[in-house]
Design a protein around this nucleic acid. Sequence first.
DNA 1: CGATTCATGTGCATTATTTCACAATATTAG
DNA 2: CTAATATTGTGAAATAATGCACATGAATCG
Lengths: 217, 217
Amino acid sequence: MTKESKIPNPTIERLAFYSRPLEALLKGGPPVISSEKLAGLCGVNPAQVRKDLAYFGEFGVRGVGYEIRDLLKEIKGILATDREWTLCIVGMGNLGISLVENENFKKRGYLFVAAFDSDTRKIGRQLPCGLTIEPERKIRELVRELGIEIGVITTPSRAAQRVTEILSDAGVKAILNFAPIQVRTPESCIVENVDFSVKLENLVYHLERLYKGKKNG
Amino acid sequence: MTKESKIPNPTIERLAFYSRPLEALLKGGPPVISSEKLAGLCGVNPAQVRKDLAYFGEFGVRGVGYEIRDLLKEIKGILATDREWTLCIVGMGNLGISLVENENFKKRGYLFVAAFDSDTRKIGRQLPCGLTIEPERKIRELVRELGIEIGVITTPSRAAQRVTEILSDAGVKAILNFAPIQVRTPESCIVENVDFSVKLENLVYHLERLYKGKKNG
DNA sequence: CGATTCATGTGCATTATTTCACAATATTAG
DNA sequence: CTAATATTGTGAAATAATGCACATGAATCG
Ligand SMILES: NC(=O)c1ccc[n+]([C@@H]2O[C@H](COP(=O)([O-])OP(=O)(O)OC[C@H]3O[C@@H](n4cnc5c(N)ncnc54)[C@H](O)[C@@H]3O)[C@@H](O)[C@H]2O)c1
Ligand SMILES: NC(=O)c1ccc[n+]([C@@H]2O[C@H](COP(=O)([O-])OP(=O)(O)OC[C@H]3O[C@@H](n4cnc5c(N)ncnc54)[C@H](O)[C@@H]3O)[C@@H](O)[C@H]2O)c1
């Protein structure tokens, strides 16, 4: 019985997480995996794995486990990664280049179909991946023409909010923002922020507690 | 009264988050901010802001708010970002280069003092930031010599676990891993994983629910 | 075929986190 | 000085997420 009425957000993140080792396991070894094994690979509790999956259906067989191939297909269906998504990226500095050149995205169905920058020296340059850097003012036109659904922002912070507005205005439905500020979007556009420094700050907080021999932190 | 006995992990992440707008506010405008304003800028509940801060002391003045300069200093003290940290990075591909060349890290006190790769064509190359790419086999020696505390991993997945072991073995106390696998460390070494695709998968899950007009997701 | 083993799916207790709501304290106006 | 207003710090309530523990069904063995 599927009961998608009240799914914890962490569950969604973990589903993506589970799919990583599953993909690797597909390439060899037994065709079935237990919640215990999978949990071990992902560093979570086995009951957690079972509960997460049970929100969406009964994918396992009691006494046996989960058929890896099937499970992966189910997870991809749930996450909607069983189709291709068209993305554009704005801000072709070091990070922007690094993202569009990364093979993993294409492999997972995330297709960068346009790249924008405001720097006239960069506009027109062709990238190894085949994309040509377009001027910022063509965002609206190309988002519509190419049916771009997701925008990735890799500009400096000061430009991020303006770019967000241009993108959402052009019809992009979701934004992944790498600039270390909290951008605001209209209702019609969802946003995720990625901030590496927050992760680092987390690490050093815990490190410092360790050094000081504190129990918590 | 400071009671650091039971601090929620999300609190630590939010502290880092709060410091971003505070830094910006330092550069102009009123010297004091209310929990409500700060909460607004960070997209959280005002009571959350107050409670998060109250775990570590009484930094505000009732009826008035928080002195921005002081608050920032307190947060930096808590997170241990009021000192410099020495890092090294392993895997000087696109992402690795992008990280070491990024000014924000230095600005926040995160100093990359060594860069490693296994590719003989890359070893010896000097980067714009001044670092020279060192061979992987020098990790142990340089970590000790330079007192490196944190290791950043930007190698392909297949190398990440081995690199983790080399780093923790060499005495690194914390690892920030960008390869999309869950690396395991001994007790003496803490680890944070950053996986952009998980964020994307989150976005498309929610997007798909929106398209389908589902209430939840 | 019955007994044994294995591993899922899930109700429920536990633990963690967020939010409310208000007493306490500071400031401002009259 | 008193009243009105602002905003913190916090106990208690509400909400969210996790993990235990076990009934349930499948597979295997003798
Ligand atoms: N490089 C990293 O490793 C890293 C890490 C964490 C966060 N970030 C953040 O990601 C963002 C990009 O980082 P980077 O290192 O690539 O910076 P960068 O300076 O190399 O690149 C920024 C690019 O954005 C372009 N740009 C500026 N304004 C624009 C606008 N209005 N429209 C379109 N393009 C515009 C610039 O021309 C430039 O090409 C920054 O906000 C940075 O803080 C980067
Ligand atoms: N580029 C991105 O935007 C991006 C996004 C998400 C995740 N990642 C992950 O980050 C990692 C790096 O990405 P990238 O795009 O820079 O890849 P890349 O292939 O450009 O760079 C990888 C580098 O690691 C080096 N390397 C390989 N094995 C090594 C070893 N044992 N010791 C030291 N160095 C070694 C290679 O020589 C190469 O220089 C990958 O795991 C990738 O999946 C990258």
